[in-house]
Design a protein around this nucleic acid. Structure first.
Lengths: 195, 195
DNA sequence: GTCTATATGCTGATAGAC
DNA sequence: GTCTATCAGCATATAGAC
C-alpha cells in the first residue's frame, strides 16, 4: 500500500504517548512544552494535534490507561484462599506491578492536580476502586478473626502508602531484588494487621 | 519613624512566603507565575524581586525552612526511654507535625524535581538526616531484642511512607481527630516492627 | 520599596500548503 | 500526516522614575 511520504500514523501515535510519559515523569506536566514532546517524537509540534485534541487529554489518557491496566491486572487474577493469602497476593502484586512501571506510577501521584475537575473525578474513581479491593480483604480478615485492625479505612490507606512508597527509593541496581523487597514488605504488612 | 509611602518591607516579605507556599501547593511550582504571586501579595510583579533573586530561590527557601524546622522540632525534644518509647514518640510527633503543615509537606514531596541539582542535594541531605533518626531507633530496638525487622533500611522507608501517607487523606472535618489517627497508626507501626 | 514599562523568549493551538 | 508560518498571550527578569 503506497503511503504519503512522511506519513507514519502507526508509529507516531505510540511514540507520542511514550515521549509524553517520560518527559512528564522527568520534568512535570506543566514544565514540559508541546515542542519538547514533538522534538522527542521527531515531528513538528503542529503534527501532534493529529493525534490528540490538546495537552490535557494527553495527560488524562496516560493516567486513565495506567489505572485501567492496573485494575485489569489485579481483577484478572484468581483470588481464592484465606484473607491472609489474598493480602499476601495483593502486597506482592502491588509492589511488583509498581516497580515495573515507575514513570506511570510517578505521574499518577504527582500530576493529579493538573487534571481538569472532570478528568480528576474519573481517575479518582478508578483509584478508589483499586483501594476498595484491599479494604475488602482487610474487612474479611477481621470478620474471620485472622486480622486485628484498629480501623479498616485507615489501615487501607496505611498499607497502600507503605507499599507504594517502595517506588520512591528502589533502584534496580541496588542490593535487593524485587522479590526480596516484596518479601520484606509482606513480612511487615502481615505483622501490622495480625491478630 | 516616617516611612516612604507604599513601603512595607516588614509585611511584604512574610506575605510573599505565605502566598508562594499556598499557590505552589495548590497549582504546582511550574504552573504558578510571579504575577499570580504578586497579585496575592498585593504588589506588582517587579516588587517581588526586592525580596528574592529569582523564582527558584523562593521554592528552595520554602523547602529548606520546612526541613530545618522539622529537624529542629524533633531534635529539640528529649528522647530518653526504650526504643519502643522513642518509636512511639517519633510516630506521634511525625503525624502531628505533618498534619499541621499540609502545604509545606505537600510541596516538599512534590516539587523536589523543580529544584536545581545543588538545591536538591541540600534538601535531600536534610531529609536523610531526619530519616536517620528513625533508622537509629529501629536499629536500637533490634539490638535490644524488642524489635524484629527484616531490614533496617527498608523498614525505615516503609514506616516513613506509611505515616507520611496520612497527609494524603486526612481532613480536619473528618470523623477522626489527629490524636485518634496517631493512635491508630502507632498501633500498626508497633505491630509491624514487634519481636 | 513600589511603580510602570519593557526586553526577550517561550506557550498552546490553528491555518493552509503539499 | 507533516510541514511552515503564525496568532495572541504569558513567562521571568530588569531599568529607571518616584
Amino acid at each position: 500500500m503506497a503511503r504519503t511520504a512522511g506519513s507514519h500514523s502507526d508509529i507516531t501515535g505510540p511514540r507520542l504517548q511514550m515521549a509524553a510519559l517520560r518527559l512528564f515523569a522527568q520534568h512535570g506536566f506543566a514544565a514540559v512544552s508541546m515542542r519538547q514532546i514533538a522534538k522527542e517524537v521527531g515531528v513538528q509540534a503542529g503534527a501532534l494535534y493529529n493525534y490528540i485534541p490538546d495537552k490535557q487529554s494527553l495527560l488524562f489518557d496516560l493516567l486513565r490507561q495506567h489505572m485501567e491496566d492496573l485494575l485489569a491486572a489485579w481483577e484478572g487474577q484468581d483470588h481464592g484462599g484465606s484473607a491472609a493469602e489474598r493480602l499476601e497476593a495483593f502486597t506482592r502484586f502491588h509492589i511488583n506491578y509498581h516497580l515495573e512501571r515507575p514513570d506511570e506510577v510517578f505521574i499518577s501521584y504527582m500530576e493529579l492536580r493538573n487534571l481538569t475537575p472532570e478528568n480528576f473525578a474519573v481517575i479518582e474513581g478508578l483509584r478508589r476502586r483499586y483501594e476498595d479491593h484491599l479494604e475488602q480483604i482487610l474487612r474479611d480478615g477481621m470478620e474471620q478473626g485472622s486480622f486485628q485492625i484498629p480501623d479498616a479505612k485507615v489501615a487501607t490507606m496505611a498499607v497502600i502508602a507503605m507499599v507504594t512508597g517502595v517506588t520512591t527509593w528502589y533502584r534496580t541496581a541496588g542490593r535487593l531484588s524485587q522479590d526480596e523487597v516484596a518479601q520484606i514488605y509482606w513480612t511487615m504488612v502481615q505483622k501490622a494487621v495480625s491478630a
